[in-house]
Design a protein around this nucleic acid. Structure first.
Lengths: 147, 147
DNA sequence: ACAAAAATGTAGCCTCGGCTTTAATTCTGT
DNA sequence: ACAGAATTAAAGCCGAGGCTACATTTTTGT
């Protein structure tokens, strides 16, 4: 799975950085779907394939396949012709994603990005924000708040 | 090309935002390759498939296919068994990407992200930074500089 | 209750961005 | 000059994430 045995905190080499960026990308779509399903369940008690597809802006079969991947990853469960639900792990992921999204949007706004743009860009950016960077954002926002 | 006739500055709807994020992602890999080719040409006068593959951390055939896409998009040119070169458009793209990368790294550092992490995260982030956001970053950095 | 409508599932196709394997071409050293 | 090494190309596979078209099941309205 890992290229190098001990990739703890070593400065990642150029190719490794690309690998990591690609890996993050692989997770991105799943994160979006998980978050969306979480939203739908909160808003309407359940997440139907049609609603997921509608909000994600994709055709139903695409949503179905995404849900299948979520199920395969142990993030969601569903029975045929019934709604989709998140596992504990899936719900935790959704919550993390949501929190991260908010932090990214806030950070962007804090450095002067127009709110509308911040919201748009965050959609793509958020998946590539590492934990270290996220915590730095939080510290920055906390510091900026008490000014 | 555009979904809606007048998508000037309207607050993008949720599905549209996802579409945009996906479109940005489609461009990301090409941007990386273009930048890399630009680097190689600058450093060694030409960009060979092997070198491109090596630095991108992929197998040569993958690099070959990426170059094919770049050529199809009018960003690069090459002849069989010869090096790869950027068109004017490709070179301009590479330069924009490089500048944006620097700005993103600087912004991250400015808000307290460790330089190593900034460099890593920027690799994934940069492709999703819109022009509006980029200009906001530049303004922020300029303002922070004169403190 | 049952037919029509809506939702979901299934199958099959596409592109992209990876990969390996095998073939062709160019480069290099003696 | 030419054999062997290195490079590039070509072909074919895979999974992800889109799509359309069609089949099935469930919901709904009369």
């Amino acid at each position: 799975m890992t290229d190098t045995a001990d990739d703890t905190d070593l400065p990642a080499s150029r190719p490794e950085r690309f690998h990591q960026a690609r890996a993050a990308q692989a997770m991105a779509v799943l994160e979006d779907y998980a978050e969306m399903i979480g939203d739908l369940i909160e808003e309407m008690g359940e997440a139907r394939i049609t609603d997921i597809a509608g909000r994600m802006g994709v055709a139903h079969p695409t949503a179905t396949k995404a849900v299948a991947r979520l199920k395969r990853e142990g993030l969601a469960v569903s029975r045929p012709y019934r709604g989709v639900f998140l596992t504990e792990e899936g719900a935790a992921l959704a919550e993390r994603v949501r929190a991260r999204h908010r932090t990214v949007v806030d950070l962007l706004i804090a450095v002067g990005v127009p709110p509308e743009t911040a919201e748009m860009d965050a959609e793509g950016l958020e998946h590539h924000v590492s934990d270290v960077t996220l915590r730095a954002f939080e510290r920055y926002l906390a510091a900026a708040a008490k000014t």
